[in-house]
Design a protein around this nucleic acid. Structure first.
Lengths: 246, 246
DNA sequence: TTTTCTTTGTCAACACCGTTGACAACGTGC
DNA sequence: GCACGTTGTCAACGGTGTTGACAAAGAAAA
């Protein structure tokens, strides 16, 4: 389970000013905070109480630290948010090893990235909205491009397929995360609205929707992501130097 | 050009209290605001100055109205945001007519939806993060599902393909919108970072990335969306009742 | 050791945000 | 004429990101 760290000072007493006595005399008050600790704490806050709960004051309370201490490690909140997205990919790629052939490598990379985002849907929703220029993204790109080029594929074509793969993977993950990241109450209400009988009454002018409604709600999203991914990988096969062009 | 309306009171004097004299004696002060006017103004604000510029105070100033007047039409800001996303699809589908066969209909629907989101990238970035249960979504779904079912395809299979189509279209649009919605300054900086020579120095451990970098930046995203879409539509063809299964 | 400097956390304050509740003006129906 | 609901106004509240001056802990230099 990905449950990040962030254990120190879990139950902070609201925003009570830090009593200098409570922090051990020889204790490591100095150099206590760092980027990863802040990021992991932020992630756990979002996952617990939603994106709107992530504030500097909350973050400070969680770590028993003055809210503004965060500014020593991130210039502003946007930078913190971007770091969250980066971290998601980072932990996902931590134990990643390429497969034996290009196809299994690409498949594993896509599935890994997808899982990374879906494991923290509410963080992902925030993160996808910002472009990333970070180490993890570079590594991910290099792995995928390497697999594609190892087939003898022209670099330009490989680049095109890589972009398609990213679109497919991150795009569908973003959509699904947005959906999964909602409050349970909203989710249940939504489910009721789409569940057939109700829809039939509410929107009789959409017969096809009404007919297909039951199939839309119970669908296993993972399955049809796999299907789309296979489609793309098949398309790569066809373009391989060895095979007929079309 | 999609430039929405919102012309009344363009140059608002900061947040100066509304002088009751400035509003024509017989003028239509009452019943002046309405949902669509607010939504269109909100969209133009976001497109001009970014999502963070959309505040009730700004919205009020733009329309020469007290900020809290908005609350007479939307219960809270989240509702306003959701309305923005709905409106995007709504205007896109306004003039939409299905094509002659199922394939051209699906193609047109996907391209139309994509264009709708990309025409207002910064709004789309906000909107995709909220689930939509609105009229426009229903209509879009019904059109696509109708086209799929008209081929004789089983309803369950049609539903699967529809979900795949949505994933592909909205997902890639969301990603691209997130990218396009950034400040020009950030965009230029990003471009520099990925432009090959710089990358080569910064990240020598990623040879495949360095080799492919030039092809990644200049890529026409529309083109490879079309390619992905064709892939999906081809897959639909294969599953048609008339053709051999595999 | 003493002195100086940089780093890192603290604190009070700022402007702005979404939101609320009481109030006023208008148009409608009795 | 008069009550009434609708719609816009205004002042105020608590919470937010952010700033700048300050203090303490170590590192570096004397």
């Amino acid at each position: 389970m990905p449950k990040p760290v962030a254990d120190r000072g879990k139950a902070a007493k609201a925003a009570a000013p830090v009593n200098s006595d409570t922090h051990g005399p020889g204790g490591g008050r100095r150099h206590f905070l760092n980027r990863t600790l802040l990021v992991d704490t932020a992630i756990s806050v979002i996952e617990e109480d939603g994106p709107e709960a992530l504030t500097f004051r909350r973050l400070g309370a969680e770590l028993e630290v003055a809210p503004t201490a965060v500014y020593r490690h991130f210039p502003d909140k946007d930078a913190l948010l971007r770091a969250l997205g980066d971290r998601l990919l980072e932990v996902a790629l931590e134990g990643f090893v390429p497969g034996e052939d290009w196809r299994s490598t690409l498949h594993a990379a896509a599935v890994t990235a997808r899982r990374a985002y879906l494991s923290h849907p509410r963080v992902a929703t925030l993160a996808v909205a910002r472009a990333t220029t970070n180490e993890a993204t570079f590594r991910f790109a290099d792995i995928c491009l390497g697999a594609l080029r190892s087939t003898g594929l022209d670099t330009a074509v490989a680049a095109r397929f890589y972009l398609a793969l990213v679109d497919l993977t991150l795009g569908s993950a973003a959509l699904e995360a947005a959906f999964a990241g909602q409050d349970a109450a909203v989710l249940a209400e939504d489910d009721a609205a789409w569940s057939g009988k109700l829809l039939e009454i509410a929107a009789p002018e959409y017969p096809n929707l009404v007919a297909a409604a039951p199939h839309l709600r119970g669908a296993y999203r993972d399955d049809h992501f796999e299907a789309l991914l296979s489609l793309l990988l098949d398309a790569v096969s066809v373009h391989l130097p060895g095979s007929a062009e079309y």
